[in-house]
Amino acid sequence: MAYDLDVARMKALSPSPLGAPSASGSPAPEPSRPVIKLDHLSKSFGTFQALQDINLSVLQGDVLAIIGPSGSGKSTLLRCINWLEPANSGRITVGDLSLDCSKPVGKEQITTLRRQLGMVFQSFNLFPHMTVLRNVSLAQERTLGRSRREADEVSMGLLERVGLADKAHQYPVRCSGGQQQRIAIARALALDPKVMLFDEPTSALDPELGLEVLAVMRELASSGMTMIVVTHEMGFAENVSEHTMIMADGQILEYGPSREVIRNPQTERARRFLRAVNDR
């Protein structure tokens, strides 16, 4: 409870309390307009229907938690949004870009799509042969055309923000899982995304290390970042995200304000899932 107030207060204070040291802070569009919109999105692997007719809007500054049993399509949904997994049909709209998934899509469009999206993976996927600093700087130089010095400056600011400036010149293997995930978050933030996608960011971590990652995500949420978080962390879903969506069998079972969805689910399938989660 007290924690909720905290988030609310931080949000009221400023859009970015710690200040993302980004060169091009994207101007916030009018709050009513969705940053991400999915229309009738479907995806199948062979005969397996992974996503069925998904419709979803995520507003600027919204934090959406996606929960649900394994194999329900949560991760596939995230991976479709940034085109790691091309959807079969439907429409993905991110900012001003709108892509029809049933038609062939050009490389530049995928690039434009991904430029607006930061992705954090369950298994961190840092580049093991680069220092922490290099991990965060590389894509800034390659895709945003920043100089090495500019990129490193941005990187140091972000590493500071996730509390790991002292690890800048280490290699990832010297860092704990929680630290690696925070570095991965910094790496994604370095490209000034409009939306951050998190694919079970704490599932590979023990509970204590998970907490430090969740703390960073909470800070990010309170700074006004739009986030979609696939997670099993019910605490995060209930306390940090405005909205929660429950998925099963490639469909949206429930969607709404987090507390309502989690405390008072309407469908039997969602109740069963939440009961299983709470019984643990």
């Binding site: 790691l84 991904r114 930061g118 993976f121 298994s123 996927n125 580049f127 895709t143 994604a188 490209l191």
Partner: peptide, 22 residues
Amino acid sequence: SAGQWEAAHALNLSRLSIWRDV
């Protein structure tokens, strides 16, 4: 690991950069 490719793609690295840098 496949995760290296995915991370590189998600970071929008070009094909050349993926091969050369990663």
